[in-house]
C-alpha cells in the first residue's frame, strides 16, 4: 500500500505482518502519530513558512520577504547579546554545577549513616519550580530590605546593606547563578550517584592491591574514567538547560536588556512585539544551533565510548538530544 515497506531486512517485525496486525499497529500508534503530525511537525513546517514572511501581529501572513527575517535576526545586536549572555551564564553554571554535584555525590556515596537524609535534602529543591525559587530569591533572600538574609550576612561582615540587587551589573548574576545551582545540583548529584554505584568494586580492590594509596590517585585513575560517559552526558544536559534558560531570567531580571538569554529574546520578539516572522526565524536558528552543538558534542566527547553502554545509558543519551 506504500513504497515505504522496509522489505525483508526489517528486524522489528520478525515475521510478515498479518492483515489484522497492520490495523492493530495503527490503533496503537494513531494517537501519538496524529498528535506528532499536528503539534510537532505541522508547527515546525508552518513556522518555516512564516519565517519567510512579514508576519507582524498575525499568523496568516501575506508579504513574502525571503530570507530577510533570518538576516535581521543574526545581525540583530540584541540577538548576539543573548548568545553572549548564554555563553557567560554557561561559563559559570556548567563547571560549578558539575563540580558541586559530583563532589556531593562522592561525599554522600556509601555514607554509613544519614546518606538518605543528605540525598533527600539536596534533592528537595527539584520539587520547587523556577518561579517559586525566583520568588524566594527576589523577594526573600535578596529583597534589599535590611531584614533580608543577604543584608544580614553583609552586616555580619561589617558591610553596608545592598538595597537593589537586580539593577546592578555583576550583582544580579549572583542571584541568577545561585538560584539555578540550588535547583539543579540535586538532580545531577542523583545522576552521578547512580553512575557511582555502577563502578565495579573490584577495580578499587585491584588498584589497592597494586599499591594505589592516595584517594586523589584512586579518583583520577579509576572513578573519573569510569564516570566518563555520565560526565559527558551531564555536560551536554547542563549546556542544553542553560541554553533553554527562561524562567528565572524572566522572573528575576524581567524583559529588561540587562541579562537576556536566547529564549527571553525570542519571547520578547514574538509576544511582546507580536512579530511572528522574526520569532519563527529566530526559533529555527536556535533549534539549528542546538542540534549542531549536540552533534558536535557527540562527535568530540563520544558518548559511551568508555565503560557503560547499557540500554539505560543509551536512553539518557537520546534524551540529551531532546
Amino acid at each position: 500500500m506504500t513504497t515505504f515497506a522496509p522489505g525483508r531486512k526489517a528486524s522489528s517485525s520478525r515475521r510478515h505482518p498479518r492483515r489484522g496486525e497492520e490495523l492493530t499497529f495503527w490503533i496503537f500508534l494513531a494517537p501519538f502519530f496524529v498528535g506528532l503530525l499536528i503539534f510537532t511537525l505541522l508547527p515546525i513546517a508552518w513556522s518555516a513558512v512564516l519565517s519567510l514572511f512579514d508576519a507582524q501581529a498575525t499568523v496568516y501572513p501575506t508579504i513574502f520577504v525571503g530570507l530577510r527575517n533570518y538576516i535581521d535576526i543574526v545581525t540583530d545586536p540584541d540577538f548576539l547579546n543573548s548568545i553572549g549572555t548564554f555563553l557567560v551564564f554557561t561559563v559559570f553554571i556548567v563547571p560549578v554545577t558539575l563540580v558541586c554535584s559530583l563532589g556531593l555525590a562522592l561525599l554522600v556515596n556509601r555514607l554509613p549513616h544519614g546518606a538518605g537524609f543528605f540525598r533527600t535534602v539536596i534533592f528537595l529543591p527539584t520539587a520547587c519550580s523556577y518561579v517559586v525559587a525566583s520568588l524566594i530569591w527576589k523577594l526573600g533572600l535578596f529583597n534589599g530590605l535590611e531584614s533580608s538574609l543577604a543584608n544580614q550576612v553583609l552586616a555580619l561582615f561589617g558591610q553596608q546593606p545592598i538595597y537593589s540587587w537586580l539593577n546592578q551589573f555583576p550583582l544580579f548574576w549572583i542571584l541568577l547563578v545561585t538560584v539555578r545551582l540550588w535547583l539543579q545540583i540535586g538532580f545531577y548529584m542523583l545522576l552521578f550517584s547512580a553512575a557511582l554505584q555502577r563502578v565495579p568494586e573490584q577495580l578499587y580492590e585491584a588498584a589497592s592491591i597494586d599499591g594505589v594509596r592516595s584517594s586523589w590517585r584512586m579518583f583520577w585513575s579509576i572513578t573519573w574514567p569510569q564516570l566518563r560517559s555520565t560526565t559527558s552526558a551531564v555536560i551536554l544536559l547542563l549546556m542544553i538547560a542553560a541554553f533553554q534558560a527562561f524562567d528565572e531570567f524572566y522572573n528575576l531580571v524581567g524583559a529588561g536588556p540587562t541579562a537576556r538569554p536566547p529564549l527571553v529574546y525570542l519571547y520578547n520578539r514574538a509576544f511582546t512585539q507580536q512579530d511572528f516572522g522574526h520569532g519563527s526565524a529566530g526559533a529555527l536558528v536556535l533549534t539549528l544551533i542546538m542540534v549542531v552543538v549536540a552533534l558536535l558534542q557527540n562527535r568530540f566527547f563520544g558518548f559511551g565510548a568508555a565503560d557503560d553502554d547499557s540500554p539505560r545509558k543509551r536512553a539518557s543519551r537520546k534524551k540529551v538530544a531532546a
Binding site: T2, F4, A10, S13, E22, T40, I44, L286, A294
Partner: peptide, 26 residues
Amino acid sequence: PSRLSKPVFALTLLVLMVPSATTFIP
C-alpha cells in the same frame, strides 16, 4: 509487526533531536 514500524520509529527519533523549548513559538 507492521511494514511502517521502522519509518515511524525513525521519525520519532528525529523529533527527539528538536529541542522542546524552542518550539514554543511554532
